[in-house]
Simulated scan of single mutants.
Amino acid sequence: MTVHLIADSAADLPRSYFEENGIGFIPLRVSLSDKEFEDAVTIDADQIFEAMQNGETPKTSQASPQTIKNVFLQYAETGDPALYIAFSSGLSGTYQTAVMMANEVKEEFPDFDLRVIDSKCASLGYGLAVRHAADLCINGNTIQEIETSVKNFCEQLEHIFTVDDLTYLARGGRISKTSAFVGGLLNIKPLLQMEDGKLVPLEKIRGQKKLFKRIIELMKERGGDWGNQTVGISYAANEEKAIDMKNLIEDTFKPKEIIMHSIGSTIGSHAGPGTLAIFFLKK
């Protein structure tokens, strides 16, 4: 029996990937200049980054309940099981809303096997989990096998983030404006990581060379089995820096595959242009 896969725009995968693999798409929402947009549908990340560089502060919100319900209903009518892998509940309320909408849909379609997973992942890390699930769907795994495997995958996934300009985190209330000003003067680059679905500070590095060196050290400490895994790199209006990071990772670890994609509007609205993130599996 076919298992249908659903994900949302915070996975930071190209829309073409969703379309080519028949994956249901749920857009999160972004507000900019008093107008509301659907992430990756009516606005793209480049527009967000340009606006932020011009001093605007976009705001984000979870996917609307009706949007989520409509996607679920679409699959309920097929009679096949469906699995929604959601953006981390630590960063968005979309997962909780999806659980409520799933219960409503199941009241109307009691035989519909619909499952909702809190990935506790973000950006292309979340995207790697979606790709993993898609491969399992193609291979004909059952929904139980896919659900179990995806949960294990997400638990093993490392997220290492760095931002180029602390000002954007200050605007969003993540750090004080004084810290952002001093950090900028000293060329301090913060490293952040995901813990239980939330983005938390790891350490501060001065200068890009030391930053790249430290990221490689963390990958050596935490990662492994490189020849059998895909590394993800997401970036925000700094593709050249991401390519430099990609080349360094290739030379050091020779992973099976490295995929790159721009950070989307949702996460980009908080992190800002210049953000770089690396995703890989733990040892």
Rank of each mutant, 00 (worst) to 15 (best):
S31V: 04
G172N: 15
R222H: 09
G172L: 09
V105L: 08
G272Y: 03
S31Y: 00
S179N: 10
K35P: 00
T252R: 08
V105G: 06
L28I: 12
E155V: 00
N54T: 00
D113M: 04
K220R: 14
D113A: 11
R174S: 07
L281D: 00
A86R: 06
F37N: 01
R15Q: 14
E257A: 09
P14E: 04
G184P: 00
A63L: 07
D164W: 02
G173S: 07
D251Q: 13
G172C: 11
T230Q: 15
L248T: 13
H4T: 07
S119R: 05
D135R: 14
Y235K: 03
C154W: 02
S176A: 12
L136V: 10
H132D: 10
Q47N: 10
E147V: 01
F18I: 10
S9Q: 07
H270I: 05
K283C: 02
S89R: 10
T57N: 09
F280M: 00
D80N: 15
Y168K: 07
D8I: 13
L202G: 01
E77L: 08
E158K: 05
A40C: 09
A51F: 03
G125F: 08
L124W: 04
S89C: 02
I267G: 01
V182M: 09
G224W: 05
R15S: 14
A122T: 11
S9M: 12
T162R: 05
F161V: 13
E221V: 02
A237R: 12
L166S: 11
T252G: 12
S64M: 05
F253M: 03
F72K: 11
H270M: 08
F25S: 13
V99D: 12
R206T: 05
E36C: 03
G223D: 05
S265F: 02
N152Y: 01
F49I: 08
L276T: 07
E50P: 01
T94A: 06
L136T: 07
S262T: 14
A133T: 15
S88E: 05
L218N: 06
L5T: 13
E145T: 07
E107F: 01
L281P: 03
M260Q: 09
M1A: 11
P81N: 13
S31R: 11
L186N: 03
L83Y: 05
M245N: 01
L136N: 06
P255E: 06
F18V: 11
T57H: 08
L276Y: 03
A133V: 14
A133F: 04
V130L: 03
L83N: 12
T266H: 00
G55A: 09
A82R: 08
K254T: 14
F181H: 05
A11H: 03
T2F: 04
A133K: 07
L192R: 01
F181V: 14
G223L: 01
D39M: 08
V105I: 02
I249E: 02
F212P: 00
V116I: 15
M1G: 13
V105N: 09
K59Y: 01
K256M: 14
R29N: 13
G232W: 12
G79S: 11
K246R: 14
Y17F: 15
A122C: 12
M219K: 02
V71K: 12
E217H: 07
I278A: 04
N247H: 07
T162V: 07
N247C: 02
M52C: 03
V99N: 10
T266F: 05
